[in-house]
C-alpha cells in the first residue's frame, strides 16, 4: 500500500514537473523561432543582393537551410506561389501562416509581426525591398529581446511551478 502511494506521488510530481517544463519550453522555442526568422531575412537579403533568384526560389532556398516550422512556413508559401492561382505574395504568406501557426506557439504580438512580414515580400525594386527587410529585421530584433526577457523571467518559474504544484497536490492528497 505504502509502495503504491509512493509510486502515485512520484507519478503526480513527475507529471506536474513535465507540464511546467513544456510551458517553459514554449518560451525557449519562441526565442529560437524569432532567431530563425532573423536568419531567414539575412538569407533573403543575400539572395536578392547577389543573385537574381525569384521569390518562390528564394523561399525554397530558405526552407532548405532553415529546418523545423520556420523552414516549413517558407516551403508552404513557395508552394502557394508556385500554384499560380492568382494570389499575391502577401496572400500566399498569410495562407501558409494560417496553416502553420499552431506549430510555432508564438505569442499574439509575435504572430502580428509575422503577419506584417507578409506585406514586404516582392514589393518595390531591390533598394526598396532591402529597406523593408532591414526594417522588419529591426522589429524582429525588438521582439527577440522581449522574448528573451520573457524567457529569463518565466522559464525557471514554470519549471518550479510544475514541481511545486505536483508536491502541493501530493501533500493535499496525503
Amino acid at each position: 500500500m505504502f509502495t503504491a502511494s509512493l509510486m502515485g506521488a512520484a507519478l503526480i510530481i513527475t507529471s506536474a514537473y513535465l507540464f511546467g517544463c513544456s510551458i517553459a519550453a514554449t518560451y525557449k522555442n519562441r526565442v529560437r523561432y524569432l532567431e530563425e526568422f532573423l536568419l531567414t531575412l539575412e538569407i533573403f537579403k543575400a539572395e536578392i543582393n547577389f543573385g537574381v533568384a525569384l521569390l518562390p526560389e528564394v523561399f525554397q532556398s530558405i526552407a532548405q537551410r532553415v529546418h523545423g516550422p520556420v523552414g516549413q512556413l517558407f516551403m508552404q508559401s513557395a508552394a502557394y506561389l508556385e500554384k499560380k492561382e492568382g494570389l499575391n505574395a502577401t496572400e500566399c504568406w498569410h495562407k501558409a501562416l494560417q496553416d502553420r501557426q499552431d506549430e510555432m506557439e508564438l505569442a499574439g504580438g509575435q504572430m502580428e509581426l509575422l503577419n506584417k512580414m507578409g506585406l514586404i515580400w516582392g514589393r518595390g525594386d531591390k533598394k526598396d525591398q532591402l529597406k523593408q527587410v532591414t526594417l522588419m529585421q529591426e522589429l524582429l530584433r525588438q521582439a527577440l529581446l522581449e522574448a528573451k526577457n520573457e524567457q529569463g523571467k518565466n522559464e525557471k518559474v514554470w519549471r518550479y511551478l510544475g514541481l511545486l504544484g505536483g508536491l502541493t497536490i501530493v501533500i493535499l492528497l496525503l
Binding site: 533568384a53 499560380k84 499575391n88 518595390g124
Partner: peptide, 19 residues
Amino acid sequence: EQTLELICNHSLYAYEEEL
C-alpha cells in the same frame, strides 16, 4: 498592381531592368 506582381513572379526586385 496585382497583375504586375504576377507577371514579375512576385519579385519586382528581379525585374528592374525590364521595368
